[in-house]
């Protein structure tokens, strides 16, 4: 097996991201991933049915971001085993842009700045690529509304994307993209880290709004360390990752236990991966 392709020929599945009929379920089975020869994911199993909110927790370095990047198709991550499907497609065979057009979205833990590319041009290019270009006036109006809801200064429209943005501004800009692109599954990699209480509420409400607008059809895989954001976005399921595996899964009460007891009990206790607690 190898890393995700960056260029691809051959026909695009009909309809791009918008009109695919298979349910937008994510299925990860036995996923093994290495970076530069170093094994990071050691067989991850995970299923996120359409429209559900799943939280993914676990200590630093357990492989959460690696999973997120791998799902999105970052070329640095080499898949050495297992399978991933989304909306019935073999995700691992697709370039990152096709995955996005299939309805996958990743809110980056550390989004990249692209000097010279304004937020407006970035978003227009993204919408155009996804076959969902809006007339200029509608686009500007929508963008204005979303930015206001996220309490972003209008000047961010013409600023270069993420360039010189503070940590909090980057998080908001990621959610702004989520709101404009309305994916079928949003992977949010620590959208709450480094935010103060007010900013966290703004970000969480931003995600909620998109979910509600899509009548509960957008799924969320929310990577976080903190219980607080889960108070805003109640998860259907909570998974705990450790050393490249999902070691425990449960209902939203699992997040409570982690908040109270830390990760230790789950890490010590695990013998077989994916234990139900």
């Amino acid at each position: 097996m190898s890393s995700a392709p960056l260029t691809q020929s051959g026909p695009e599945p009909p309809g791009g991201g918008s009109a695919v009929s298979a349910p937008a379920e994510l299925r990860v089975e036995g996923l093994r991933v290495q970076i530069e020869g170093k094994r990071i994911l050691e067989g991850v199993d995970l299923r996120v049915p359409e429209g559900e909110v799943h939280a993914l927790m676990g200590p630093n370095g357990s492989g959460k971001s690696t999973l997120a990047y791998t799902l999105m198709g970052h070329p640095k991550y080499e898949v050495t085993g297992g399978s991933v499907s989304f909306a019935g497609e073999d995700l691992l065979a697709l370039t990152p842009d096709r995955r996005a057009r299939l309805g996958l979205f990743l809110s980056f833990q550390q989004p990249t700045a692209i000097p010279g590319v304004t937020t407006v041009n970035f978003l227009r290019a993204a919408l155009r690529s996804q076959g969902r270009e809006l007339p200029a006036r509608d686009f500007i109006r929508r963008l204005g509304e979303e930015m206001e809801a996220l309490r972003m200064d209008p000047s961010f429209r013409s600023r270069y994307i993420n360039d010189g943005f503070s940590g909090g501004e980057r998080k908001r800009a990621e959610i702004l993209q989520l709101a404009m692109l309305e994916p079928r599954l949003a992977i949010l990699d620590e959208p709450d880290s480094g935010l103060d209480v007010d900013a966290l509420r703004t970000v969480a409400e931003g995600v909620r709004r998109v979910m509600e607008r899509n009548a509960g059809r957008m799924g969320v895989l929310l990577i976080t360390h903190y219980y607080r954001i889960l108070e805003h976005l109640t998860p259907d399921r909570v998974h705990v990752m450790s050393e490249g595996r999902v070691v425990a899964s449960g209902g939203s009460e699992l997040a409570h236990r982690i908040e109270a007891e830390g990760y230790e009990p789950f890490l010590d206790a695990f013998s077989s991966a994916g234990r139900e607690v």
Partner: peptide
């Protein structure tokens, strides 16, 4: 930059 290219591709923009 690979990361810049990936960021755009992750939003659906072809390479």
């Amino acid at each position: 930059d690979d990361e810049e290219r990936f960021y755009l591709m992750a939003r659906g923009v072809p390479a």
